Simulated scan of single mutants.
Amino acid sequence: MPSFVTILDFVGTFAFAISGIRLASAKRFDWFGAYVVGLVTAIGGGTIRDLLLDVTPAWMIDPMYLICTALAMGFVILFGRYVIRLNNTFFIFDTIGLALFTVVGFSKAYSLGYPFWIAIMMGSITGAAGGVLRDIFINEIPLIFRKEIYAMACVIGGLVYWICLIEGLESYVSQIIGGTTVFLARVLAVKFRITLPILKGEESSDS
């Protein structure tokens, strides 16, 4: 039986792949191009995490990541007219993937014996880096570089996850709470237009 984290990983892969394929469809990519964007979105963050942790990237061992992306591709093909037209579809699947991958990344780093702050960083990379690569592929400014709360939601969720662990909660309960925190932080930030302060530099003046 797959572990709870493994299930979260596959569900997150499916959700993130849909977010990438949905944007690729809106940009009029062909099927192959859309699949590549979905795959990069789904495995990009985890690949960077695994390379930093000096372990073999998960998708090179388990073909389920490629299969989940193919299933996401089929989902968008079958329900494309609904998926592409709904403006909040991308946001929903992207936020679900962000939450689940943050938990997966934190869990993997923490289980390998890394301190909590490294685990939080790995959770944030797992959650946010795939979206950065997706946006680069479709020629958009990555969400992480905009005013929206994105990677910071991963940090908050990872911190809550760690607090739950040190308080003695069961691992799967901590994972659910941590992932829910990421999801709510992102949703509430967008709903109430909560943003981080903008770093302002000196304005250039014409001489």
Rank of each mutant, 00 (worst) to 15 (best):
A70S: 10
V83Y: 02
R22L: 10
L112G: 04
I67N: 10
A119E: 07
G38Y: 01
T195Q: 09
N88T: 12
Y172Q: 02
G44K: 03
K200L: 15
C68T: 11
D94H: 14
V83I: 15
G74K: 15
I176R: 00
I141M: 03
C68M: 15
W59A: 04
Y35I: 09
L133D: 02
R186T: 11
I96Y: 02
I156Y: 09
I136H: 09
S3F: 03
K108M: 05
L86V: 11
E203M: 15
A151G: 06
G168A: 14
P142F: 10
G20H: 07
L66T: 03
P142E: 06
S205V: 13
M64G: 12
V11P: 00
A15K: 09
G12D: 09
D135A: 04
P2R: 01
A109P: 06
E148G: 08
F10Y: 12
C164V: 01
F106I: 00
L98F: 12
A34N: 13
Y65Q: 09
F75C: 12
V132E: 10
V76K: 13
N88D: 10
F75N: 13
G44T: 11
S174H: 00
V83F: 08
V182A: 02
V160T: 11
S111K: 11
S204F: 15
M73E: 08
S107I: 12
F4G: 06
I125L: 02
A128Q: 04
G20A: 13
V36E: 04
R81A: 08
Y161W: 12
I136P: 09
E148P: 07
A34M: 03
L169M: 12
E148L: 15
I149F: 13
I176H: 04
L39G: 15
F79Y: 10
V36L: 15
F137E: 04
A15E: 07
R186H: 09
S204P: 05
E170Q: 07
E170R: 01
L51G: 00
P2S: 06
R186L: 10
G127R: 01
L66K: 02
V76E: 13
E170F: 01
F32R: 08
R81Y: 10
G113W: 03
I7E: 02
R186C: 05
W31Y: 11
Y110G: 00
G46E: 02
D54V: 09
S205F: 03
K200E: 12
S204Y: 15
M121D: 08
I120N: 02
Y35G: 02
F14K: 12
F101T: 07
W117S: 00
A153M: 12
I84A: 05
T47S: 03
I43F: 06
L169Q: 07
L8P: 01
K108H: 07
F137P: 02
V37T: 01
E140A: 15
F79L: 15
M60Q: 06
L159Y: 00
I120Y: 05
G201T: 10
F79M: 13
L112Y: 04
I120L: 00
Y65D: 07
V173E: 04
I163F: 01
N88L: 15
L188Y: 08
A129G: 04
I141H: 01
P2A: 06
V104T: 11
D94R: 03
